[in-house]
Nucleic acid binder design. Sequence first.
DNA 1: CCTTAGATTGAACGTTTGTTCAAGGTAATC
DNA 2: GATTACCTTGAACAAACGTTCAATCTAAGG
Lengths: 220, 220
Amino acid sequence: MTISQPVEAKRKRALSARAQATRQRVFDAAEKVFAERGFDGATIREIATEAGEPVGTIHHHGGGKELLFQRTVARRAETLSAKRLEALEQVLSTGAPSLEDVLGAFIRPFFELSAESPRWRDYARLVAYVSVDARWVDVVKECFDTVVELFISAISDLLPGRSRQQIVEGFVYSVSAMLALLTSQERIMSLSVKRQVERTQVDHLIRFCAAGFRVEGSMA
Amino acid sequence: MTISQPVEAKRKRALSARAQATRQRVFDAAEKVFAERGFDGATIREIATEAGEPVGTIHHHGGGKELLFQRTVARRAETLSAKRLEALEQVLSTGAPSLEDVLGAFIRPFFELSAESPRWRDYARLVAYVSVDARWVDVVKECFDTVVELFISAISDLLPGRSRQQIVEGFVYSVSAMLALLTSQERIMSLSVKRQVERTQVDHLIRFCAAGFRVEGSMA
DNA sequence: CCTTAGATTGAACGTTTGTTCAAGGTAATC
DNA sequence: GATTACCTTGAACAAACGTTCAATCTAAGG
């Protein structure tokens, strides 16, 4: 017996260019359909139609509906986290960052990506969906908690004396407000006039959250 | 032909005591299951099992899955709206209400009801579910917009000079933060220590939102 | 070249889905 | 007490669901 392979058994073969393109079509379609209909409302067959692939292919690349969903959420998470981390480091390197700077480093990247591509808008809605369903808490933790922890730490440094509990609560409020602006423009619009998320709205959101963080301590 | 009925054809007969009890069992079960699994994840059969009724009864009282869902959302809406309205009038009658008073009149009733009964906690989760899904915007409007309009108006009075757009945005952020506290305690807890929504957390939420509203105008 | 692991395809399977319906039960109304 | 309208019940149905699988094709490794 010749030892033609390392002891660690078999290595995964790399995806061919065609297979890689197929996989991307599958995940793009999954992202769109999951964002529109949620996990339970989406069907493998609708994803297959959207992707222009037969149903078997969805299962082959996705590994079943549940795993496909988790992978779809995870797929863009690293890109988003990297952008946030870069923005945070940029802001911390200035020496004396404001609360608005730090919150902006978390919030702005998502809006920038959303402005670039409708796929990122789908992803935003998907994340909002995931955040409201207790069933995916572990996926959310896996995807985002490392970076969230760094931001919580950075905010704590800016607000000495606040308990971790208070910082976390403020952060949860900020994230839910961010997702509300990312996804429920329709509701804002139906009660108002505008047609699109504008820079001023993101600025408003950031100021709103920063003020909320700062107020802690006053009042009975 | 004797005119035994008014021109307006047939009148609905009142529900018997038994039928009323059955209907309540149906809606209580629907509320619980919809809150746990969402619209698409819930099944009529699980609702039937939860209610201890045969499947046909669910359809009879609910009028089909979609109508049952809408009715389940609407069922408690009036109670909640009435409590909010009462609190708002109470606060406005004092002459010089603070922003915290007005926001508290909107936010506190939901937490008070949640503290009273697990059914209201189910309802809170249901409302959170509904708020994130564009498919139910009309239901949300129908159920809540009248009262929301009054609160927006009251807040506008307290913050003259702010555009309606800004007030609406702030209100949307506040509502999403409120729902986040109502439903995602698990997430707050997993990053923190506590075990229950406490009065101090509701106070914190209200101060957070009020500060966000007030900050508008400063900063570039 | 040959070999072989993976990718592609779509028909088929067993469940579960929301809904329907006809039969029987209950209680208001005259 | 007869009539009538509604409630209750569970079996039955067609459609849609996620998944499986054997056959076929593609292309990388030797």
